[in-house]
């Protein structure tokens, strides 16, 4: 006879229920019966444990009942760049240059800042945060490449319409029967929020108050603050992701879905920051993702261009850049994929 979902819930509840102890009986607690059990706080805890497991599965690229990651799924380090820069990125990769993807220091943009060696001079905000990060991690600003954690979406769109997805899986399967291995990029530092938050309220004032009480400099105090948000990808990603999803979707007697989890992990302007201590090239990518919204806008521009319906030059330029980017990626054997449903793995 097939077990009904209610019976299943009842059995789960019985299995989880605390065993009787020998302690003296206290005031009797009314036991929930029937459907009333669904609203108990203990039952919520059971759900939370199940949801925590679901987050771990999503981070590992697995469905609820999977034991092996699905291709292209799971938490990945992503870097968003504008289509205009994909061509030069691919060319540097093809030439075997050591730093195909470049940070601000690689392009010698220090010229925009005053001399950091002189402590009496003011620092740029980026230099200040870089010093705070150096205090927290021991890594120097020029050595760090800042990415984000993404599962199945298109990254931080503000930084570019092309989402470069690294192939490395920072979180491996928890299956104890499989050989233990150090996950690629699992050693990267992970911040559960943007490191520039130390310069914004309410954290900025908290750091200021701390300096007023204890003395010291802002960069050191900010570095201490960053330590509280800091972890490594392999060890802490599942934990911080669970915490973030818990805040966005308070624990209750509902199961979190893979799509909902994925959307919370990187939500609009709010993302997990990854400090990768090395650059990367096209050979390190599993794919490049573009959003369905951008693809639709591009297709609309193309239609108007071909029909002679006065697409503006900036629109034509954008379309041309994206087309050149796709061609360059194709030459480098990097697939480009349109994400039609962020949070779900579906090819566009």
């Amino acid at each position: 006879m097939r077990t009904s979902w209610l019976s299943w819930l009842r059995n789960r509840w019985i299995a989880w229920a605390p065993q009787k102890t020998t302690r003296a009986p206290t005031a009797p607690t009314p036991q929930p019966r029937g459907l009333d059990r669904l609203s108990t706080s203990e039952f919520d805890k059971e759900y939370h444990r199940a949801n925590e497991g679901a987050v771990a599965q999503v981070m590992r690229g697995m469905g609820p009942d999977d034991t092996d990651p699905k291709a292209g799924a799971g938490a990945r380090i992503v870097f968003n760049i504008a289509a205009a820069h994909v061509l030069s990125f691919c060319e540097r990769s093809a030439k075997g240059e050591p730093k195909p993807y470049q940070n601000a220091y690689d392009l010698h943009r220090q010229v925009y800042f005053v001399n950091a060696a002189d402590a009496t001079l003011p620092l740029s905000r980026r230099q200040l945060v870089d010093k705070a990060l150096e205090h927290a991690t021991g890594q120097k600003g020029p050595d760090i490449y800042f990415g984000a954690i993404e599962t199945s979406g298109t990254g931080v769109r503000f930084y570019g319409d092309m989402c470069l997805v690294l192939s490395a899986m920072p979180v491996l399967s928890s299956d104890s029967t499989k050989p233990t291995a150090v996950p690629s990029d699992g050693d990267c530092y992970l911040l559960d929020r943007n490191s520039y938050d130390v310069l914004r309220e309410p954290v900025k004032s908290a750091i200021t108050d701390e300096i007023s009480r204890s003395g010291g400099t802002f960069d050191v105090a900010a570095g201490e603050c960053l330590k509280q948000w800091l972890g490594t990808l392999a060890q802490d990603l599942v934990r911080v992701a669970t915490e973030k999803v818990s805040i966005a979707m308070p624990s209750s007697a509902r199961l979190w879905t893979g799509g909902a989890i994925a959307e919370v992990v990187l939500q609009d302007e709010d993302y997990f920051e990854v400090l990768r201590p090395r650059s990367f090239g096209t050979s390190d990518l599993v794919e490049v993702r573009v959003s369905a919204a951008d693809a639709a806008a591009e297709a609309d521009i193309a239609t108007r261009e071909r029909a002679g319906e006065a697409a503006g030059l900036h629109e034509l330029e954008w379309r041309q850049q994206r087309r050149e980017a796709r061609r360059a990626l194709a030459r480098a054997n990097v697939p480009t994929r349109v994400i039609t449903t962020p949070g779900r793995l579906k090819a566009g």
Partner: peptide, 10 residues
């Protein structure tokens, strides 16, 4: 923070 962090990219 999103605006400021953009300055890290080349």
């Amino acid at each position: 923070s999103v605006a400021l962090a953009a300055g890290r990219a080349g």
